[in-house]
Structure formats: structure tokens, C-alpha cells
């Protein structure tokens, strides 16, 4: 009997235990991160600051000179900064959920090692996802501070842009991880970045308002998760958010995250219990 307790089976685990197990998976990633966080300082702090400087100030000086009526009268810096926040969260989420997940099976085999422990595939998934959320949160928080320092925040509601960005990141990280674990070759990621991330970044209302797109493309853009993330963050940062609109964005992103979390538990099980 004691044996059976020590090795929990699928479906026979009380909620607290599942949480504890996922937490163990999370701690494993934290240990790895403690060794490597220094080199991430660039990608998480300096990188976004560079983007904000180049886009908001450099390009912004040209846009502002030409007129910002189509932006709703705000400066280009104010317009673009929350979009880069949302886009950055998506980027971190997709990045963390792609090669690291794939590599945990194929290269450094962290999942394979974890599989030999009492952790079940779903715990491994949730543990890793928790770590991704942590990274998304850290990067987004830093960026929000940079935004504030650059004077690109126009409302106190902007504090809510942080959870909004984290939700955006999670809405990408969970489904991508659920898919990444099923891959046999890393080639799929190239397509994901090329045909997923790049068009999303360019056409989701990040660098220019959607009103400039032709009708059909505009409709497609409204359906993308990144646009909802951008709209949510922008609403909070500019102080123009409405309760109804925000709820709609949150519901869309939360649904995507939930689907990813549910499917991920299954795809992880299928891949790790073979």
C-alpha cells in the first residue's frame, strides 16, 4: 500500500498533490535558470529597450511629424509601446515553449530524466509551463518599467497591462508547448516562426492601426490572438480600456490558454508514455 502511495497513478491524484508535483517540475527549471539567467539579461531587458528606443523615438519622430490622427491623437511612442509589450510576451511564450520543450526530449533530455521520477507527464507539462509564465512575467514587468521610464505610460491602469501581457504570453505558450512536444523534428518551428510569429507581429495592429488594412485582412487580424493581447495592453496603457472590450479580449486569450493546457496534458502523456 505504501508503495502505491509513493508512486501516484494517473487519475488517482488529489488536487494538492498534483500541484505539489507540478511545483517540483517548476523548481527543476528554476535550478537550471539560476545558472543561466545572467546571459538572459540582454534578451529580457536591453532588447526591449532597444526596440522601444528605435521604434518609439526614431521612427516615432517621423510618424509624429507626419500626423497622428489615425493613432487616436497619441504619440507613436505611446501607441507602439504597449504593442511591443504584448508582442514581447508572445515572443517569450513561443520561444520558451518551442525549442526548450523539444530539446527537453531530444537534446538535454530533462523530460526523460523527470519521467523517471514520480512526476507524471501532466506534472512535467504544468511545471514547465509555470516556469514559462515566470519568464513571461519577468520580461513583461521589466519592459513595463522601461516603458514608464521612457514616459510611454499614460494611465494608472497600466499596472493591469502586466497581467494582460502575461495572459497573452500564456495563450501562446500553452498551445505551442502542447504541439512542440509532439514534434519529431525541429523543422516545424521554422514554419511556426516564419508563418506564425512574423505575420502576427507585422499585421496584428502592433506597428500601425488595423484601420489601415484592407477589409478582408482587417477581419483576419481581428481574429488573431495577438491583436487581442495588443488591444488589451494598449487599452490599459493609454487608459482607454472599456469593461466590455477588455472582458472580450481576456475571454478569448483565456480560452486559448485553457485549450492549450488541457491538450498539453494529453500530448505530453502520449509522447512521454510510449
Amino acid at each position: 500500500m505504501a508503495q502505491a502511495m509513493a508512486f501516484p497513478r494517473r487519475g488517482a491524484v488529489p488536487g494538492e498533490l498534483a500541484l505539489a508535483l507540478a511545483l517540483r517540475g517548476f523548481r527543476c527549471w528554476l535550478t537550471v535558470y539560476r545558472r543561466t539567467w545572467r546571459s538572459n539579461v540582454f534578451s529580457s531587458v536591453l532588447g526591449p529597450a532597444f526596440y522601444l528606443g528605435a521604434m518609439g523615438f526614431g521612427l516615432g519622430s517621423l510618424v509624429d511629424a507626419h500626423g497622428t490622427a489615425s493613432l487616436g491623437g497619441v504619440s507613436y511612442l505611446d501607441f507602439v509601446a504597449p504593442a511591443i509589450l504584448a508582442f514581447g510576451a508572445m515572443n517569450t511564450g513561443m520561444g520558451q515553449a518551442s525549442f526548450p520543450v523539444f530539446g527537453s526530449i531530444k537534446w538535454n533530455k530533462i523530460y526523460i530524466a523527470a519521467q523517471a521520477s514520480p512526476l507524471r507527464p501532466a506534472d512535467i507539462f504544468r511545471g514547465h509551463l509555470a516556469f514559462m509564465v515566470m519568464r513571461i512575467t519577468m520580461n513583461a514587468a521589466v519592459f513595463l518599467c522601461v516603458m514608464a521610464a521612457f514616459g510611454a505610460v499614460r494611465s494608472a491602469w497600466a499596472v493591469l497591462a502586466l497581467p494582460a501581457a502575461v495572459l497573452t504570453g500564456l495563450a501562446f505558450a500553452a498551445p505551442v508547448a502542447a504541439w512542440a512536444v509532439t514534434l519529431k523534428q525541429e523543422m516545424g518551428f521554422i514554419y511556426m516562426f516564419r508563418f506564425g510569429m512574423i505575420p502576427l507581429m507585422l499585421f496584428s495592429g502592433t506597428f500601425f492601426p488595423l484601420s489601415q488594412l484592407p477589409g478582408w485582412l482587417r477581419l483576419a487580424a481581428y481574429a488573431t490572438p495577438l491583436w487581442h493581447g495588443v488591444a488589451l495592453c494598449r487599452g490599459f496603457s493609454l487608459g482607454t480600456a472599456t469593461a466590455g472590450g477588455s472582458l472580450l479580449h481576456v475571454a478569448y486569450l483565456a480560452a486559448l490558454a485553457a485549450v492549450g493546457i488541457v491538450i498539453g496534458a494529453r500530448t505530453y502523456r502520449r509522447r512521454l508514455y510510449v
Binding site: V63, H66, S70, R194, F195, F208, Q212, L217
Partner: peptide, 28 residues
């Protein structure tokens, strides 16, 4: 993996399109 190779052509297309439709209008 020729498709990976060939599909790389789309990236500049996306960028040019986005600038033509979007940023170009904003900047003048």
C-alpha cells in the same frame, strides 16, 4: 528540407507588405 529553404522567401514579402500597407502610410 527544400521547403524550409524556399519558404524563407515569404519573410521579406511579409515585411514589405506590412510596411507598404501600414508604416508607409503613417510616415509619409
Amino acid at each position: 528540407a527544400w521547403l524550409v529553404f524556399a519558404s524563407g522567401v515569404f519573410e521579406p514579402l511579409f515585411y514589405l507588405l506590412s510596411i507598404g500597407l501600414g508604416l508607409g502610410v503613417l510616415v509619409g
